[in-house]
C-alpha cells in the first residue's frame, strides 16, 4: 500500500475516472473468465430434457443430480477416472523425484558436467524430433498399449528443471558447507537437507506436473486409443466433444431435438452429458490451484529469470 500514504491520499479527478474504468474492466474480465464454466455447472445440475429449452445461465432451473449419477454409472468414465488419477499421482511422484535429483546435481557449483548437462537439457526446448519420429520410437520400444507411455516420455520437463535448479542455487551455501564438514554425502544432503528446504518449489513443480498429467489426452489418442482400459477422463470428454463438433456445432441443436422426442426421464442428452463431463474433468484442478497460488507465482518468476 505504498502509494496510499503521504501525498498520495488526495485523489485527483483523473484518478476517479481512471479507477472507475479500471474496476469496471476488471469485473468484466472476471465475468468473462468465469461465466462459461459456471454456465456448464448450471447445465450439469439441471434436468437434461429441460436444459434443451435453453435459457439456463448461472443457476439450474430444475435441480437434479441425475446427470452425475448417469455419468458415474458409465464404465468408461469410471475407468477414465481411475487412469487419470493413477497417472496424475504416479506421474507427479516419479517426475518430481527425477527433476529434483537432476536439478540438485546441476545446481552444484563444482559438478564437472554442470554446464554440459544443463545445455543438453535446455536444447530440447527448441529442438526435438517431432511427432512422427517420436511415435515410431515409442512403437519400437513396445510402449504402445502400456500405462508407462504416460509417465516415461515426459519424465522431466525442462522448464520445471530450470525452476528447481534456480531455487536450489538460491539456498544459503552455509548450510551445505556445514553439512559437508559433518561428512554428509550428496544423497544424504539431497534427501535430508535440500528436499525439506525446497518444499515451496516442490509444491510448484508438483502442481505443474499434476496439471499436465491430469489434462493430457493426446498421448491417449496417439498411443492407446484402441485400448479402453487405458482411457482417461479428458480423452472421454474429447470424444464427446468431437462427435458434437462434427458439423460445426450445429449438431448440438439437431441431436438434442432428436433426443427430446422420446421424453424418457432417464435419458441424458448430449448437451447435459458434455456439460457434466466438462465439470468432472476440471473440478479437481479448480479446487486445488487457488491454494498453491503464492508458490506458482514465485515459481514462474524463478523460471523466467533462468
Amino acid at each position: 500500500m505504498k502509494k496510499n500514504n503521504g501525498i498520495f491520499i488526495k485523489r485527483t479527478r483523473e484518478d476517479v475516472i481512471f479507477d472507475s474504468i479500471n474496476y469496471t474492466f476488471m469485473v468484466l474480465l472476471c465475468i468473462i473468465m468465469l461465466y462459461p464454466f459456471i454456465n456448464q455447472l448450471a447445465i450439469s445440475l439441471n434436468e437434461a430434457n429441460d436444459s434443451i429449452r435453453g435459457g439456463i445461465y448461472l443457476w439450474p432451473r430444475e435441480f437434479t443430480w441425475h446427470n452425475y449419477e448417469h455419468v458415474f454409472s458409465e464404465a468408461s468414465v469410471i475407468q477414465g477416472l481411475i487412469v487419470s488419477v493413477s497417472r496424475t499421482v504416479i506421474g507427479t511422484g516419479i517426475s518430481l523425484l527425477a527433476t529434483a535429483m537432476v536439478a540438485y546435481a546441476i545446481a552444484q557449483k563444482d559438478f564437472i558436467f554442470k554446464r554440459s548437462f544443463t545445455i543438453i537439457f535446455v536444447m530440447t526446448m527448441y529442438f526435438n524430433g517431432g511427432l512422427i519420429p517420436t511415435y515410431l520410437l515409442i512403437r519400437d520400444l513396445n510402449m504402445i498399449g502400456t500405462f508407462w507411455v504416460y509417465i516415461i516420455p515426459g519424465l522431466i520437463g525442462v522448464f520445471n528443471l530450470i525452476v528447481m535448479r534456480s531455487f536450489i542455487e538460491g539456498l544459503p551455501t552455509s548450510i551445505f558447507e556445514s553439512a559437508r564438514i559433518d561428512g554428509a554425502g550428496d544423497f544424504m544432503m539431497f534427501f535430508k537437507i535440500v528436499l525439506p528446504l525446497s518444499l515451496p518449489v516442490l509444491a510448484t513443480v508438483a502442481l505443474f506436473v499434476a496439471v499436465f498429467q491430469w489434462n493430457q489426452w493426446f498421448d491417449v489418442f496417439l498411443y492407446n486409443s484402441s485400448n479402453p482400459s487405458l482411457t482417461t477422463l479428458q480423452y472421454e470428454l474429447m470424444k464427446i466433444l468431437q462427435s458434437s463438433n462434427a458439423a460445426g456445432g450445429s449438431q448440438d441443436v439437431t441431436s438434442n431435438l432428436a433426443n427430446s422426442q422420446n421424453q424418457n426421464a432417464n435419458t441424458v442428452t448430449p448437451l447435459s452429458l458434455r456439460a457434466t463431463m466438462t465439470i468432472v474433468a476440471s473440478v479437481p484442478i479448480i479446487m486445488v490451484y487457488p491454494f498453491l497460488q503464492k508458490y506458482f507465482v514465485k515459481g514462474m518468476t524463478l523460471g523466467a529469470v533462468k
Binding site: C30, M33, L34, W214, L241, V253, T278, Y289, Q293
Partner: peptide
C-alpha cells in the same frame, strides 16, 4: 480468477468455447 482458464485442459476449454459460440 484470471489464472483459472490456464489450468483447464484444452479439451475443457474447447468445449466451453464451442458451447459459448454455438447457435
Amino acid at each position: 480468477i484470471s489464472y483459472m482458464p490456464h489450468f483447464l485442459s484444452w479439451v475443457v476449454a474447447a468445449s466451453l468455447v464451442s458451447f459459448t459460440l454455438s447457435f
